[in-house]
Design a protein around this nucleic acid. Structure first.
Lengths: 154, 154
DNA sequence: ACATATTAGTTAACATTGTTAATCATTAAC
DNA sequence: GTTAATGATTAACAATGTTAACTAATATGT
């Protein structure tokens, strides 16, 4: 690797170029795979999956979900209607502050989500197994570096 | 780092865990930033931006765009209507096979896209500049490793 | 303590954006 | 040369997002 290459390899612009070449298509493929299995095997949409995922990971209020997903509260409220109708989520009034609606996965919801996680994980593992241990370590460290860069605002 | 940690760090499941923790939120933030500037400063939506982006990078047919974006041809056709109305894209019948509609960016379209690229690049650079050269190299290598893993089907 | 403001969530009306089915024009195939 | 297949569009419609208006509960200020 020449001096010039090294410089290019370590410039922010190189990282950005790389990001645009790799991340959107990758995320698209993962999303497509989830869309397909979520719809075919579990009868939910990707959006519904993402909401379940957030509830699963501790986001239990409508506002919290809206904030996390970057969409409006009414949109969440409507989406939750669907999830409640499908018996994947329950609404209950918070005792501490009765304005809050506490969202919880039902057993069916948790089971569905864990199955879908498992399925996705299996599919991703199939690809990632092709990497050597050092490549896997690179992947983890690389993602963590980017995470750190975008950690705080500004 | 203990033996156990090393093993965990280099398992496919560790990469997957890391992926889910980092990629969706990161992509969400980038998308949000683009949504905001694209709307405020350029009067287009993110979806329109992505279509422009694909045309810019050589995808010049409706079917190609539909394939690339994973949505139906009619959806692309409608979106292109908007872009033509905004004078960002032109349609023209292909001479070789007159069924094909050849899509091209107008000067305004190319200018808009390049400005938006520039803006996004500046914003991302602001974050990525905080990384050390070696962290940047890690980021690039990590993304490339993941790209390689997901390169082909299966 | 009581009127006012704020906050969480929902409802309603509507815009956007996707889908499928049907159609037109053009090219390929038998 | 008729029939089939392909690229794109149109039309009708479903899903999902938005804002504005509303309800209920809690906080605030005098």
């Amino acid at each position: 690797m020449t001096q010039i290459d090294l410089l290019e390899e370590t410039s922010p612009d190189r990282v950005i170029e790389c990001f645009w070449e790799i991340v959107p298509p990758l995320w698209g493929r993962v999303r497509d795979h989830i869309r397909q299995t979520a719809s075919e095997r579990f009868g939910i949409t990707v959006e519904q999956f993402h909401i379940l995922r957030h509830v699963y990971s501790g986001c239990s209020s409508v506002s919290g979900l809206a904030e996390a997903k970057g969409i409006s509260r009414p949109a969440i409220s409507q989406a939750v209607d669907m999830l409640v109708a499908k018996d994947l989520v329950t609404r209950s009034q918070s005792a501490a502050d009765r304005r809050f609606v506490h969202l919880q996965l039902t057993d069916a919801g948790r089971l569905l989500l864990e199955s879908l996680f498992q399925e996705t994980r299996d599919w991703m593992r199939l690809h990632l197994e092709r990497l050597s241990p050092s490549e896997m370590a690179q992947a983890v460290q690389g993602m963590q570096a980017i995470q750190a860069a975008f950690k705080s605002e500004l």
